[in-house]
Design a protein around this nucleic acid. Structure first.
Length: 603
RNA sequence: GGGGUCGUAGUUAAGCCUGGUUAUAACGCCGGCCUGUCACGCCGGAGGCCGCGAGUUCAAUUCUCGUCGACCCCGCCA
């Protein structure tokens, strides 16, 4: 652990305070000769018998304090009992360290404090883990999060988080945004993620829902005339967790009136650049952020959030094989399916690598995956014998398929091919080290479809959310609802979606039409969103916005691998808090008050 | 809901595949020594229901099944 790694300078806030005069990390050569009181935790103690050294640590860093019998016999004697993480207040004179005993590795390494007197403000039991051990199991770190947080590297993350919040507020307030707090106790909505539910005591049998996002409130604020809204908003979704997903998380939520897509994207991009600069100390490499249509992203990368840190595009080669004699290709094409290929250039793959890749594709849902290796004019492949000369020539031209390259081909329905090949692309990128880990690739993905057909529910559902406006009016639209585009946009960073938004429907008839198309009955729409529809009829301005995943942005910009690393008190994958033990059973009295009976009680 | 990895002193790991001795090491902890260390050093010591429960076996940390917990992924996450 590098104690000196906190770059965040806290100015001297301690003037006039009585317990201590300075932060530990702020003692400098300017203090030499001064008598100071310091307070902090005992990071390490080095007892030489005649002389005891203690590294005293606070949020700013550490300073060496010396207990010497020549300064105070009492203090030196009492210091024999000091242990790790005791909380001390020491008073003594700052001196320059004797020659040859400076420590150039810490900022305070030129000075030390000779303790005249000290008091133990608190003791500390034997620690469950050593604070300077970097390999500690995460569950123990989370159970003792307060100890984990004493580690400078962990403190640094939350200091950076605070900095990012401030940058966000400063930037948006300077752009005329007004900060709001919207309710946590809200109304359950049918679309989208599963809600966290809160029982209402005053209205028995009724439930609040915690907000999945402040979506409707922020739209209502636009209808309230506030013009530009933002909130650093906690959101709740009762879905399964992942490395980058927590049940409660924070969004930077933005909404603006009288804007089009370009206006929202411009403000948002400015905000992201500001946060990036604050955390990374430099501007993003590419500005303005490049853009790609959803259609192109799916076509070339099989993903709506393509990772551009490596190339490896997908190419459709259905045309080359229209006359093929290879059964699988032939059958696929006849059945309306397609072929897509990825060429891995200049990599030597073992037979095992190839087999592993095929297995990986199958696990991702492919029926199979064909590989071909070109050695000069010879083709090595399980399907080599079916290949015609013009097909080889066609691939070589279309794919730039050169000697030594390997091509992977998948044949299936378009959606399936895009999905599997898109994921296989990421697999190959990771497995064969194609990803430029130093690259920071922002990308706006635009022109999403408004709707997608849900096989499960046998109806169209909103791809973004059901308040998103289409690029052309649904009321006059004729034809396939699956192909109508939305005024929606996502911001992608290194293959991860960090934010998304849309221009909303601001007229009641448009919104009602959308509800109709997604098969929401009028009564249901009125029941769930009646207040919105009514508000839309009372002079709602055109408006739109977006939301960024604040935790996710921090995780990515700080180069961390888990969203839990940027959340002070995160939940485990099963949604529990190891520190507090939440969730827990509640007492019968509480249940009675709520008129709730649980099914698993008796056991 | 499904697939996978892991679980051994306080901590981090080894041992387990190939069952059998006192379960090993480092850090931490306890006691002693040490006036220039900063991952201080030296000497000595304590510390284990091998996650839990069944099964197989003469014998299980080791093999099998179940279960609990942590993590990763699929589904899910408008």
């Amino acid at each position: 652990m590098t104690v000196s790694s906190i770059p965040y300078i806290i100015i001297d806030f301690l003037k006039g305070l009585t317990v201590r005069d300075k932060y530990c990390g702020h003692v400098t050569t300017n203090d030499i000769g001064k008598e100071l009181s310091l307070a902090g935790w005992v990071f390490r103690r080095r007892d030489h018998g005649g002389l005891i050294f203690v590294d005293l640590r606070d949020v700013t860093g550490l300073v060496q304090v010396v207990f010497s019998p020549e300064i105070s016999k009492e203090a030196h004697e009492a210091a024999g009992d000091i242990k790790q993480e005791y909380v001390l207040r020491v008073t003594g004179r700052v001196e320059k360290r004797p020659a040859e005993t400076e420590n150039p590795n810490i900022p305070t390494g030129e000075v030390e404090v000779y303790v005249r007197s000290f008091e133990v403000l608190n003791t500390c039991k034997t620690l469950p883990f050593q604070l300077d051990d970097e390999e500690i199991n995460e569950s123990i770190r989370l159970k003792y999060r307060y100890l984990d947080m004493r580690r400078p590297d962990v403190q640094k993350v939350f200091i950076e988080r605070s900095k990012a919040s401030k940058v966000t507020r400063d930037y948006l307030v300077n752009q005329g945004f007004i900060e709001f707090e919207t309710p946590f106790l809200t109304k359950s909505t049918p679309e989208g993620a599963r809600d966290f539910i809160v029982p209402s005591r005053l209205n028995q049998g009724m439930f609040y829902a915690l907000p999945q996002s402040p979506q409707l409130y922020k739209q209502i604020l636009m209808m309230g005339g506030f013009d530009r809204y933002f909130q650093i908003a906690r959101c709740f979704r009762d879905e399964d967790l992942r490395a980058d997903r927590q049940p409660e998380f924070t969004q930077i939520d933005i909404e603006m009136s009288f804007v089009d897509r370009e206006d929202v994207m411009a403000v948002s991009e400015g905000l992201i650049v500001a946060i990036y600069e604050a955390l990374k100390g430099k501007k993003p490499p590419e500005m303005p952020f490049p853009r790609m249509s959803y259609a192109e992203a799916m076509e070339k990368y099989g993903s709506d959030k393509p990772d551009l840190c490596f190339d490896l595009p997908l190419k459709e080669i259905t045309d080359i094989f229209t006359e093929t004699e290879f059964g699988v290709f032939k059958k696929t094409i006849e059945g309306g399916g397609i072929l897509k290929a990825m060429v891995l250039k200049g990599k030597t793959l073992s037979r095992k690598d190839l087999d592993d890749t095929v297995d990986a594709a199958k696990e991702m849902g492919a029926g199979g995956l064909i590989w071909m290796r070109r050695d000069g004019d010879a083709y090595q492949s399980p399907v080599a014998k079916f290949l015609k000369e013009d097909e080889k020539a066609g691939m070589e031209k279309a794919l730039d398929f050169a000697s030594g390259d390997i091509v992977f081909i998948m044949a299936d329905k378009r959606d399936k091919v895009d999905d599997v090949m898109g994921r296989l692309r990421l697999y190959l990128g990771a497995k064969f080290d194609l990803i430029d880990k130093t690259a920071d690739k922002f990308l706006w993905v635009v022109d999403f479809p408004l709707l997608e057909y849900s096989e499960e529910e046998k109806r169209y559902v909103a791809k973004h959310h059901p308040f998103t406006s289409p690029k052309e009016s649904l009321r006059t639209y004729q034809g396939d609802y699956g192909s109508i585009l939305a005024n929606a946009y996502d911001l992608v960073f290194n293959g991860v979606e960090i934010g998304g938004g849309s221009i909303r429907n601001h007229r009641m008839d448009d919104q009602q039409e959308l509800f109709k198309v997604i098969n929401m009955k009028e009564e249901e729409a009125a029941d769930k969103f009646g207040y919105l529809l009514e508000a839309l009829e009372m002079g709602a301005p055109p408006h739109g916005g977006l939301a960024f995943g604040f935790d996710r942005i921090l995780m990515l910009f700080l180069g961390l691998e888990s969203i839990r690393d940027v959340i002070p008190f995160p939940k485990t994958q099963k949604g529990t808090c190891l520190l507090t033990g939440a969730p827990s059973r509640i007492g019968q009295r509480q249940l009675n008050e709520l008129k709730i009976r649980t099914q698993t009680e008796s056991r």
